[in-house]
Design a protein around this nucleic acid. Structure first.
Lengths: 152, 152
DNA sequence: CTGCAAAGATGGCAGTATGCAACCTTCTTC
DNA sequence: GAAGAAGGTTGCATACTGCCATCTTTGCAG
């Protein structure tokens, strides 16, 4: 529990690095794009489990901030492919890097603890926890979502 | 890194347990109350680093949901003490419990890994990471906060 | 070509989160 | 007691997220 708290705290702080630049939902969208590469807007909405219209508008905002670009596909001209701009990639990188750096610092500061047995155990543990989908470990939480009352 | 991701994923999922009931900012307020006990509304706003007015209104919403109560202090009649209702405490408990249970399950499933050396290392690690204030390990992130652009 | 489905975009509506400024009420201080 | 500080609340305004319904542009059968 203690360790868990420590890790989460660390991560939360890394997230704070882009606070004021993007909101959590927006960041989640960026992460999807970073992890999966260019996506159709519908896929993003899907991934984030929001209405397509919500996705469209979120992209609008990300575009306004210059973090993302819309590209009309040539193959199927209905689809819009969305891609991170360098700036957008930066935002994600920034958080990831911050996280990694903090973690490394901490690990370095406690280097004597990290016997092979320990790291092995942690790795195995992470694997067991494993089905944490690769990108949804970034907070499956959507920040708002009051309205979930009115479900079918 | 892997382990960190695993822990964060676990926590995020525990958070999802109350999704639809409260928003992240609201949950953070509840956590403050759960951890520190009844508070003045100003202290909560302070803790959450938001404007007092924002705090007032957030409390309004929490009250409307029956998760919190306002009590006028008798000593200093300016102050309003805010306290969790049983329902409010439940919300927090629910998340904490969920988290603990998930964690325990996982630990049990990988019991053979948890040699004394490992748990000791983790404990020491957590301690080193330590200044994670007790309550702000619950996401220092405020979900919105675009407006930070217009700073002095 | 016609009709239907898919991918998005838009308009409308509601609810949350936030900040700033103005404004009561109560203390505190002098 | 008057001036001022402290704790809150309310009005006003803005930015987001979200959902629903509707509309347009394209693709794809048949």
């Amino acid at each position: 529990m203690l360790a868990s708290r420590a890790f989460v705290g660390l991560t939360a702080r890394s997230l704070a690095a882009v606070e004021g630049e993007v909101t959590l939902p927006q960041f989640r969208a960026l992460v999807v794009l970073a992890v999966r590469g260019p996506q159709r807007s519908i896929d993003i909405a899907d991934e984030l489990q929001v209405n397509p219209s919500t996705g469209t508008r979120m992209l609008d905002r990300l575009i306004r901030k210059g973090l993302v670009r819309r590209l009309r596909s040539t193959a199927d001209r209905r689809v819009v492919r969305v891609r991170l701009t360098p700036a957008g990639r930066d935002v994600v990188e920034q958080v990831l890097t911050r996280r990694r750096v903090d973690l490394e610092e901490l690990v370095a500061a406690t280097a004597q603890l990290w016997q092979p047995a320990v790291t092995e155990a942690l790795t195995a543990f992470a694997e067991a926890a494993g089905e944490v989908g690769e990108q949804d470990w970034w907070l499956g939480w959507s920040s708002h979502r009051e309205g979930a009352n009115s479900e079918p």
